[in-house]
Design a protein around this nucleic acid. Structure first.
Lengths: 215, 215
DNA sequence: ATATCTATTTATCACTCGATAAAGACCGGC
DNA sequence: GCCGGTCTTTATCGAGTGATAAATAGATAT
């Protein structure tokens, strides 16, 4: 079927590509499926939605567990954008602008039903991938943000304090929870991501400035 | 067994109580069990942990679904504290004090692994109980809080705006997400609930004051 | 002590699950 | 045309699922 659709190329490559594409098709559908139904749902139902029989899945993945591992990998690893580092570190812009731009980009990625539901499902299953992900958020987002705030405030020591990191987590959590309310519980008051980002940022920057002011 | 432990009472009452107690024992263990393992886990494993056989569960609950409904009821309905209304409404105290006290009490209830995990599990299963719960939070917590803030600021009209409610959600979400990080992902930096509550409140009150200031 | 009623267990059904093996279908090269 | 290899399906296994009916144990009342 795919060879009929596609223009002719090197036979070997075409075949391999077709196989790889089918595999990717399976993974893509698995993401959608498991995000909707949870990881305890059956491979038979997934196969049904793919329009293939269930044993075919085992031609591409040794076990259901391996398929799920692929799902994690694509959602968590492949959707992470390396340019976020640069966005936060770009000192030609004030930190507020950088954070605004970053959180718009970040929420474009994570404010998606499949991302959020898979994150929640895997977190409840106790998969270590969640803790690894949060560590990554801490190290590559929150930590740099606090350091840039310190830099902009003229501090010689950029090392974040535990309190500053906790402020950053409250900021991050407030924004994230807005996504949860919208995409999981469908109960957000405002359909306005920008408003939430801007006001959360306001609050964070005020808090973190106050931390320095009186002390 | 229970009759041996207990002092003698009216036989009929004792018997009924014993039966009711066993039922409650089942529900209590079911909360713990489903919170840990998810609602897709088997009734056989639950029975094993209770030290009884699996068909006995069906003497007390017509189906697994009914047992789960009982779990929801106990966790969501029975743990809600009616005194929260009065805590928020008590105008003999400044709103900041009231909110601090309320959020300490509220997090005492919801910052528990069983509560959080069952909330997340049921939310992912699309059970309407989550949306009902969030509506209740909105109506009996956030709405009153914003109204009290308006009252304290001397506003004649206490009706909350959508923006104010969204601020309140960000506050609530930031605090809640701290609980999630601690109890679900076990990755909170500070083991200090008070700090998170106080600083989140600071941020919220500053934001909501700013909303009135320039406008 | 025995009959009665309830709590509990044993045995089992029909179904679904993940996974495997074997048979069939399809496509390229010759 | 046929042949060899890959993709896909059919058939099936063993284990586990929610649920039910019948058998048993254990207490209560007389």
């Amino acid at each position: 079927m795919p060879s009929a659709r596609e223009p002719k190329t090197d036979p070997k490559k075409r075949k391999r590509l077709s196989s790889a594409e089918r595999r990717e098709e399976f993974i893509a559908k698995a993401i959608e499926f498991f995000a909707q139904e949870g990881f305890e749902s059956s491979t038979r139902e997934l196969a049904r939605r793919l329009g293939v029989t269930q044993p075919l899945l085992y031609r591409y993945f040794p076990s259901k567990e391996d398929l799920i591992a692929e799902v994690y990998k694509v959602v968590y690893v492949n959707r992470w954008r390396d340019e976020w580092d640069a966005m936060i570190a770009d000192r030609s812009q004030p930190i507020r602008e950088r954070m605004t731009a970053f959180y718009h980009s970040y929420t474009d990625v994570v404010f998606r039903a499949d991302w959020m539901r898979i994150f929640l499902f895997s977190g409840l299953k106790g998969v270590d991938i969640n803790q690894r992900y949060l560590r990554r958020v801490r190290e590559r987002i929150l930590d740099p943000i606090v350091r840039e705030c310190r830099f902009e405030a003229g501090f010689p020591d950029l090392t974040p304090s535990a309190a500053e990191i906790e402020y950053a987590w409250v900021l991050h959590g407030g924004i994230y929870y807005y996504g949860v309310r919208r995409l999981i519980y469908e109960s957000a008051e405002l359909d306005n991501k920008s408003f939430v980002i801007e006001s959360s940022l306001d609050a964070f920057l005020m808090e973190i400035a106050k931390l320095r002011g009186p002390g």
